[in-house]
């Protein structure tokens, strides 16, 4: 066993156990409550607005590297694609990450197939644009297509402000979500709705109510409670000059 990692292993095992227990419990009882996330509720409005106005939507991924936020955003893309296919709206998907281009393509294709409209799928509506050049292209897309709504999700950096403001200049409604706290203030200031940090990861549960996702969210919440408890106990002990908790966690 590597030194200093026992407490981390205990945490991981506990996390996995809670995930499965909560998942099984939901399968049995079907009971689960999650608070409203206005940003996710607004997706349907955005699609409806796009259909009424006859103007397309744009879903743009952040230019940061592919990681958990990207997966969470792909889940949201899946939902948006289904809604778009259902209501005959149009959606431009732009990814600056070459790795997820095939996934975006398949997600969009399968959404149309699911709605029984495979003929409506157009792969030109999914674009890979390398990080730096994507900025100009996305701005051009917003202007040319006069998009009615813009969804900005994922690992965002400075392009957050550029895209959010450019969307506002063409009168598009904006929903954004990122766990990158350095970009959150920009999204909060410039977008209509913002998913902050873990709300992005909770999107899957919110939209699908899939047991394993509910299990994962429950484990997350339990871990958060544990973290706060440990922090409080640690702070109290440290105030009395005792670092026993720190020593335990260091194991």
């Amino acid at each position: 066993m590597n030194p200093g990692r026992i407490s981390q292993l205990v945490f991981l095992v506990a996390f996995i156990c809670i995930l499965f227990i909560a998942s099984e419990s939901y399968k049995r009882t079907g009971k689960f409550r999650i608070r409203r996330i206005p940003g996710l509720d607004a997706i349907d409005e955005l699609v409806g607005r796009a259909t009424e106005m006859g103007r397309p939507l744009a879903f743009v991924f952040g230019a940061g590297e592919m990681e958990a936020q990207t997966f969470a955003s792909l889940r949201i893309l899946g939902y948006v694609c289904e809604q778009v296919a259902r209501y005959d709206a149009r959606l431009h998907t732009v990814t600056p990450l070459p790795e997820i281009y095939p996934m975006c393509l398949e997600i969009q294709r399968s959404a149309y197939v699911k709605q029984g409209k495979p003929q409506d799928f157009n792969q030109d509506f999914v674009q890979y644009l390398p990080a730096d050049s994507s900025k100009a292209s996305v701005l051009g897309l917003f202007q040319r297509e006069k998009v009615s709504g813009v969804l900005l999700f994922g690992n965002y950096y400075y392009e957050s402000m550029v895209f959010a403001e450019a969307a506002s200049l063409v009168g598009a409604a904006t929903i954004a979500g990122t766990a990158n706290f350095h970009q959150l203030p920009f999204f909060v200031a410039a977008c209509d709705y913002t998913l902050i940090g873990e709300e992005l990861f909770a999107a899957g549960v919110y939209m699908s109510r899939e047991p394993s996702e509910i299990g994962a969210l429950t484990a997350q919440e339990a871990a958060k409670v544990a973290a706060v408890t440990l922090m409080l106990i640690g702070a109290a002990l440290a105030s009395f000059g005792k670092d026993s908790l720190v020593n335990i966690l260091k194991n």
């Binding site: 969470a72 766990a179 706290f181 940090g197 873990e198 969210l217 484990a219 997350q220 958060k224």
Partner: peptide, 9 residues
């Protein structure tokens, strides 16, 4: 919160 989300995903 975000890190726990990453762990979970």
């Amino acid at each position: 919160g975000g890190s726990l989300g990453i762990v979970s995903l």
